[in-house]
């Protein structure tokens, strides 16, 4: 078993060995993944960070290339990234990484995402608590689930026991001399929120048109909070942030709840917020299942926690199937 003090020493050691460590940091009321300056910044007590590992793998905005109109030059922009250790992600966020991997490193490889993933090691701290929005067990994961982690630390008597999950984790452990632990983990916390996903895909297969879409999207105000904070949502926009002669082309998160998302000069195929909300549900619980065999939801509950108007995805799924 490793105590918190042991862990902080480990992190310091990794930083000393040239790893960039990204971990949950508390700043006023908000806990978010940040590049760690000092190990003491790590917050061990939160349920879940506000942001997700997308901030590492598919950031909210990034420069694709720089251009110069006069010279007609296009210069790809890439900062060779150091190896990054993501420390203290929760199992749901780690699981989400495997979903994005299937989408962005599957039939088509997103080169930027892939390079970041190659350089990223996920050291998860499993959950010793859950809040009322958590529903990972309903999505087939769990508070101690190792999916997507390279190494997982399971809560044990006030500290953590570390186990290797992947080959990448094994290599990392031997490289930094991380000793793995014997010892029993504490029991997993119970989740209050629980739904069964049985029949949801089948209902979606048959009900592209249904009056229920209007009902379940009533409260939605078409902002992007649930999308941007979702660990699996990955839609993006490409835009030039221009100077008169020089500028950059950026990739920027985008969102199917915005009306402009599908709007073309002469045609808008998706009119109305219930149709946009339908796209969100269909994308997660049908289209992604059809295309990669996985549901694009890990039950992290951020969309429930952060929706300003109480749209509750588990309630929606149950209402649809009902």
């Amino acid at each position: 078993m490793k105590t918190i003090e042991d862990i902080l020493r480990l992190i310091e050691d990794w930083q000393g060995k040239g790893y960039t460590v990204v971990a949950p940091v508390r700043s006023e009321g908000l806990v978010s993944f940040e590049v760690l300056r000092a190990p003491s910044q790590i917050d061990f007590d939160h349920v879940l960070t506000v942001n997700t590992l997308k901030d590492v793998t598919l950031p909210r905005c990034e420069t694709l290339f720089k251009y110069d109109v006069e010279k007609a030059s296009i210069e790809p922009s890439w900062e060779a990234s150091q190896p990054i250790v993501v420390f203290g992600s929760r199992p749901c966020d780690a699981a989400a990484v495997t979903i994005l991997d299937s989408i962005l490193m599957g039939e088509v490889t997103d080169s930027r995402y892939a390079r970041r993933r190659e350089n990223m090691i996920v050291v998860t701290l499993a959950c010793s608590q859950a809040d009322e929005a958590c529903f990972c067990t309903s999505m087939g994961y769990g508070p101690h689930d190792p999916t997507g982690s390279d190494i997982i630390g399971l809560p044990s008597k006030g500290g953590y026991v570390f186990r290797v999950v992947s080959q990448k984790g094994k290599d990392f452990a031997s490289k930094v001399g991380l000793e793995l632990d014997e010892g029993r983990a504490d029991p997993e916390p119970e989740l209050k929120r629980r739904i069964t996903t049985d029949g949801i895909k089948a209902w979606l297969d048959e009900n592209f048109e249904s009056p229920k879409w209007e009902k379940v999207s009533e409260n939605c105000v078409s902002c992007g909070a649930c999308y941007y904070l979702c660990p699996t949502c990955h839609c993006f926009d490409i835009a030039d942030e221009a100077g008169a002669s020089r500028g950059v082309r950026m990739r920027i998160w985008d969102c199917c709840s915005f009306a402009g998302f599908t709007k073309m000069a002469a045609h808008q195929p998706r009119v109305g917020k219930h149709r946009r909300y339908r796209q969100r549900i269909m994308h997660k619980f049908k289209y992604t299942v059809d295309n990669i065999g996985k549901t694009a939801c890990v039950g992290d509950g951020r969309c429930i926690r952060y929706c300003p108007y109480g749209v509750d995805i588990t309630e929606v799924l149950e209402a649809l199937r009902e």
Binding site: V108, D110, H234, T262
Partner: peptide
Amino acid sequence: LEMKMKCGVGTCGRCNIGNKYVCR
């Protein structure tokens, strides 16, 4: 078919009709 497209390779998520991406 024509839909709004950005990436052209099936990852940006806006040209789908059902589970089919028009670009891919």
